[in-house]
Nucleic acid binder design. Structure first.
Lengths: 189, 189
DNA sequence: ACGTAGGTATACCGACCGTTCTACCTACCG
DNA sequence: CGGTAGGTAGAACGGTCGGTATACCTACGT
């Protein structure tokens, strides 16, 4: 079963759009099949269950993030501070302009409990981002890289969610200010 | 229809628990009825539709928050700075220890789109909290109270969500540090 | 004594949920 | 030529969804 068939890709694209825009539980298989122009049988051949589809949806989102972050870090291999600064500005980029509904991992975690694949993916992905931040902070000689990495995650999380809920455009500047303060080691407990 | 009947209260308590712990879409009317020990007819007499029940659930949550905030502000009527500081520590209080699944408004917003009651409630409630913060900041002579109020909302949002997703106990201290920095006007764009 | 408010029990509605079935088609490859 | 991978079409499964209908009970206030 080729993982790159046209039908499979159409299913994935449709699921990504609907899951993100309307929520996972709000979107049934019937609708995905219909909008993807595919038979139910075809969908279930590629994804044995809806949970598999959900898992692939989130994994693809995570992979996209990882590619973007890894690319940026590699681009500034000799300047970790610049990498950290630019990691913040990704939030105001065009890519994120389309993400009006906030973070897919946070949103999906709100829809499921404890051991569901969605929550597992969220935990894993957030831990990965945190570890990247920690390493960069270590490289620039931050006094408390682990703590600061968690702080960065915290303000980023707040920024993404607040933007999705409050629609306040001025927030970007406030977020950037907080982000840079943490990098400079001005925020400590 | 008395808004304080025993059955009605049991329905409300059950809905509150299940909606918060497992998500709104994840919990059907059948289950609420069953666990509340009430007939479906009874439920639909008090709440004409599930959306009505959702709305009441969120309204009660909002009312609880407002009572708590108003009480705290009134208790420090002559010391707005103290009120602001203590508004942060509510997050680490016992009340919030039970809120392992994060903020009910943020979570419910993730489950619905655009014009749904859940999203309306979230917007309204967050706007109210923001206005309270802004007024307190104004009273302590903060140079940019509106912007700072949004910043406080942002870090609080990040703290609540991050705690629910990452289960990192050290986050509280980091959050408090950031909160106080904003109050002192050290974070500006 | 009687109506009404608030409740019970049970059965049902159409719609949609995730999932599976059977049957046939077609393009490509060894 | 034949097999296999990937697709089509359409019907159906049992279960749950939000919501309704009918009928009966009981406490209480006037």
């Amino acid at each position: 079963m080729s993982p790159r068939s046209a039908a499979r890709q159409r299913i994935l694209d449709t699921a990504d759009r609907l899951f993100y825009d309307e929520g996972i539980r709000a979107v049934g298989i019937h609708r995905i099949v219909e909008e993807a122009g595919v038979t139910r049988v075809t969908l279930y051949r590629h994804f044995p269950s809806k949970d598999d589809l959900i898992s692939t949806y989130l994994e693809n989102r995570a992979q996209y993030d990882r590619d973007q972050v890894n690319g940026l870090v590699a681009r500034h291999a000799d300047n970790p501070r610049q990498a950290l600064v630019e990691l913040a500005t990704v939030l105001t980029d065009d890519d994120f302009a389309a993400m009006q509904r906030g973070c897919p991992f946070i949103n999906s975690s709100a829809e499921f409990t404890g051991a569901h694949v969605a929550r597992e993916h969220s935990r894993t992905h957030r831990a990965w981002v945190t570890s990247v931040l920690e390493e960069l902070l270590t490289r620039i000689g931050h006094p408390a890289p682990r703590s600061a990495a968690h702080q960065l995650m915290m303000v980023r999380t707040g920024a993404v969610v607040s933007r999705a809920l409050d629609r306040n455009p001025e927030l970007s500047a406030d977020f950037l200010a907080g982000w840079n303060l943490i990098i400079d080691g001005s925020v400590s407990a």
